[in-house]
Design a protein around this nucleic acid. Structure first.
Lengths: 195, 195
DNA sequence: CATTTACACTAGCGCTTGCTTGGTTAGCCT
DNA sequence: AGGCTAACCAAGCAAGCGCTAGTGTAAATG
């Protein structure tokens, strides 16, 4: 009953829950599964979370939060060039998609299972992240690096990047850095072909 | 018990099921919901489908099948130009994403709920569709219309297009045709900027 | 030493789920 | 008229679901 909001135990639960949600989907993952994976009984979960929804919310929140932090860091450690910033964002996105893969897959595929309040809360986080992208894309457009409408390009690029969770193999030929370069090279940037 | 494989009634069931699967998700859609929406009792569904899985499979199969047919038609009604073919594919993809929206959203977001045999069966359909894309992209690369690796570009483009189900509003400023042009214009095609 | 806190357990309630069974109805074909 | 069949219904089973109430215990805290 007495729910604690931050503890190592809770963090571990979120990690394992994310993995299960990816493997089985949110609805098919039962509280009993998660409990067994943690070596405890199902009732004990509700000491850490109010209900099952809150577990889902926590998983997505952590992933989105990390993505935002990493993106901001990547932009700060960057000289002012529009192309460098674009590359840094793409690379950061791919890297967080790898390190927090489970959380991001859950965010992408189980978003609809969130109830209204959670969706609202997490929506603001996600909006902040997308705003970052729109700023960087806007700069790249002004610098003549790419062509098109700011919002349209942002959505196309985000779509292309998010789709990578379906096929990208980190053991394959491309590193996140190389993949980011390939993406930018594909866009109509005459000077970015070999970035 | 005695399952029929093709009938108007079954087709209608598939249509309604697709809508429910989008609204509620596959797991949260109960056979009772679907039955009620059709004005029948839940047990009667199993005259048309062996089990719930088969309904999901039928929904996705119809969507993917239509996409394949429409893409082939679009390519046939096309002169041989690589750019025209690329545009025709993108436009066909966006149009089928609209007309069969429910089925495609289900295919994108509920794929994991398929059992192994269904996934295998539908996988071949999807592979055939992606092969079409790779051919068209390959031609565009050879024509110097775009840059990059054939497989990489195919995946980036498909990702960008599929992501549109998240944000595209058919009542908005862009028609599928215009959107396809914008996407191709964004790619590094010097002669395609105003296609 | 007494109390609180964090975490886990046992045991189950109340409900929903996919699916089955056995039988009925209405229309079509010969 | 008689038979066939697609379509449906009523009733319910067995299993599984999220979640709760109440209790135990070891470590931290006063």
């Amino acid at each position: 009953m007495n729910v604690v909001n931050d503890s190592p135990r809770r963090r571990e639960l979120i990690r394992v829950a994310a993995q299960l949600f990816v493997q089985e989907g949110f609805d098919r993952t039962t509280v009993r599964m998660l409990a067994q994976e943690m070596g405890i009984k199902s009732g004990s979960l509700f000491h850490h979370f109010r209900d099952k929804q809150e577990i889902l919310c926590a998983v997505i929140e952590e992933g989105t939060h990390n993505a935002l932090v990493i993106a901001r860091e990547a932009l700060e450690q960057c000289d002012g060039g529009a192309e460098a910033r674009l590359h840094a964002m793409a690379r950061a996105h791919l890297e967080t998609l790898l390190t927090d893969r489970n959380a991001h897959v859950v965010a992408l595929y189980e978003w609809r299972r969130l109830d209204e309040p959670s969706r609202d809360h997490l929506g603001h986080l996600r909006d902040a992240y997308e705003q970052l992208w729109q700023d960087v894309i806007g700069d790249a457009l002004e610098a003549g690096l790419i062509r098109g409408d700011k919002f349209l390009v942002s959505r196309f690029v985000l779509g292309a990047l998010n789709w990578t969770v379906r096929w990208y193999d980190p053991a394959g030929a491309y590193s996140p850095d190389a993949l980011a370069s390939e993406l930018i090279g594909m866009l109509g940037a005459p000077t970015a072909a070999t970035a």
